[in-house]
Write a protein that binds this DNA or RNA. Structure first.
Lengths: 104, 104
DNA sequence: TTTGTTGTTCGCAAAATTACGAACAATATA
DNA sequence: TATATTGTTCGTAATTTTGCGAACAACAAA
């Protein structure tokens, strides 16, 4: 059940592949405390939709939530955030393309 | 018609949000010359599907193609690759999350 | 001209994504 | 117990994505 680098990168990328989810991550990155209502208040979409986007980010491992009745607190999953950061950095730094573009 | 950072990042991320497309980018990143057939030979999928994935990467700006009859040459779009690299680096380095996770 | 090579596009089907309101669950409070 | 608050889940609809074979287009070679 090991997941290789390509799939892991694709999984993170897919989670970040929607503007709303990028906005959510940007919002969370600037905070240390945050609950659903705060996130919802930042966005012009229905709460059901926000909840769905949060679920995807959670399932991709980029965020985590904890229930603190009656609220739900969300934050970045720092362990996976670091993994994603490293994966993307490695991905983008691998290019051995020479200075002249090959297709012009 | 300006596109903001969040949307641009999401667009790049979406293009990278499929394992096959990550594999294609990895393959292209290691080469200076490359045509469709080479890419297709690397992948266990139909050429129509490969062509479709290449189209998405092209429309996201990550690669470019040029016709060199009877072949089609593909390569990374270095200008946009650099932009994407910078966007992701900025995105991942913005986190102000403190050492203690907020949700445990 | 006919044939072969290289990729793209078309048309289709199945599955996944996106978005919403309504209903619901869990917990506090009156 | 009734009521309010906070989010999630359900059910639905519209759109997009993914994948394929078949048909096609462009060019080179026989």
């Amino acid at each position: 059940m090991t997941i290789n680098k390509e799939e892991q990168l694709a999984r993170f990328a897919k989670a970040l592949g929607h503007p709303t989810r990028v906005l959510i991550m940007n919002y969370l990155a600037g905070l240390n405390q945050c609950n659903f209502g705060d996130i919802h208040a930042e966005l012009p979409i229905a709460k059901a939709t926000v909840s769905q986007h949060l679920k995807e980010l959670r399932e991709a491992g980029l965020i985590q939530g904890s229930i603190e009745p009656p609220k739900v607190k969300y934050c970045i999953n720092k362990e996976n955030w670091a993994i994603a950061q490293a994966l993307f950095a490695s991905f983008f730094s691998q290019s051995k393309v020479i200075n002249i573009s090959c297709c012009e």
